[in-house]
């Protein structure tokens, strides 16, 4: 069996497993899994930029939040229908990524990290400043009645799971395909050796910008989906912590692998979920995991698997 056949089977297998899990899991865990899938979309968006293109952003919360507020505000204040508001959220995130990219991509390395961190911090403060509309830290709830799509109730456990799974599947398969295209291969080349890529005649700058826009838009999908499915929009999602999370997930699962983000979110979610029943200092776990990962397994779970067992892993 060729690598590409194996990888197609793997991706379809993961989706099939998620379908089966819905029927066998108790409701509490099925609910968790909807949340995990939405957060995994965010992680996948981040992974395209960090794992494949080699750009470490510390400000992705601004794209997640742009999707969330773009959706939530047009729906709540603008009275837009759900599909249109959803598109608005994604477009907001993509457009923000374009603007940030034009500025931040003039820098590289540590400066890029700090610049993205600062822009995200600005974004967070802007959300607080326009508290009249955003309700600041407190946030606002999207009423159950508004979270309907063509008569289909998105607040029921089933509605949530199905929507999360569909969105996840689209992003999962779409990104898995994207990284195999010449465009995706070029992103990997930039990660490995940007100067060489440029001297092979590729426009590295425009590739990075496009990667950032896609990454931002996918993060926006996750933000809008989160607001839609869980009915809450708040400034917490724009804080530094939500910029650190995707980095953590991707590092844990394996940067530059297609299934890494899902694995990372899954383990981290249950790690925090379990530990928060014992202590309110659950972010301690995140800190310990980050340190252990950087020191001992910089390639993450899927990365270590790829290195040791399955060389074909995409």
């Amino acid at each position: 069996m060729t690598s590409s056949r194996k990888s197609t089977l793997l991706h379809l297998g993961v989706l099939a497993l998620l379908v089966v899990l819905f029927f066998v899991l108790p409701p509490y865990h099925a609910g968790n899994l909807s949340r995990i899938m939405v957060l995994a979309i965010y992680a996948m968006g981040y992974n395209l930029l960090f794992g494949y293109t080699g750009l470490l952003s510390l400000g992705h919360a601004m794209f997640f939040a742009a999707g969330m507020y773009g959706f939530g505000l047009t729906l709540n204040l603008g009275g837009w229908p759900v599909p249109l508001a959803f598109v608005a959220g994604v477009v907001c995130a993509g457009a923000l990524a374009l603007v940030i990219g034009l500025l931040a991509l003039r820098t590289a390395g540590v400066a890029f990290m700090i610049v993205t961190l600062m822009f995200a911090q600005t974004g967070y403060l802007v959300v607080l400043y326009f508290g009249t509309y955003t309700r600041g830290d407190e946030g606002f709830v999207i009423q159950q009645a508004q979270r309907m799509l063509g008569g289909f109730d998105l607040t029921s456990e089933t509605g949530r799971y199905v929507t999360a799974l569909i969105l996840f599947a689209i992003c999962f398969l779409g990104l898995a395909r994207l990284v195999q295209t010449p465009f995706g291969r070029t992103l990997v080349a930039i990660r490995e050796n940007e100067e060489r890529t440029r001297m092979l005649g590729y426009d590295a700058g425009s590739h990075k910008l496009r990667a950032l826009i896609i990454s931002g838009a996918v993060s926006g999908v996750a933000g809008a989906a989160y607001a839609l499915l869980f009915g809450y929009v708040g400034a917490t999602f724009a804080t530094v912590q939500y910029s650190i999370f995707p980095l953590l997930w991707v590092l844990l699962g394996g940067a530059g692998t297609t299934i890494g983000p899902l694995i990372g979110v899954f383990f981290m979610f249950y790690l925090i979920d379990t530990s928060s029943t014992y202590t309110n200092a659950y972010m301690l776990i995140a800190g310990v995991v980050l340190v252990l990962l950087t020191v001992f397994a910089p390639q993450g779970l899927a990365g270590e698997l790829r290195k040791r067992v399955f060389k074909w892993l995409p």
Partner: peptide, 27 residues
């Protein structure tokens, strides 16, 4: 810019070896 020149038909090999060390020879 350099990449445009390469697109026109220049090719360049570096004095200090510059390859993609993490990728296969084929890639």
């Amino acid at each position: 810019p350099a990449h445009k020149r390469m697109q026109l038909g220049l090719a360049y090999t570096f004095q200090i070896t510059s390859i993609f060390p993490g990728l296969s020879v084929h890639e």
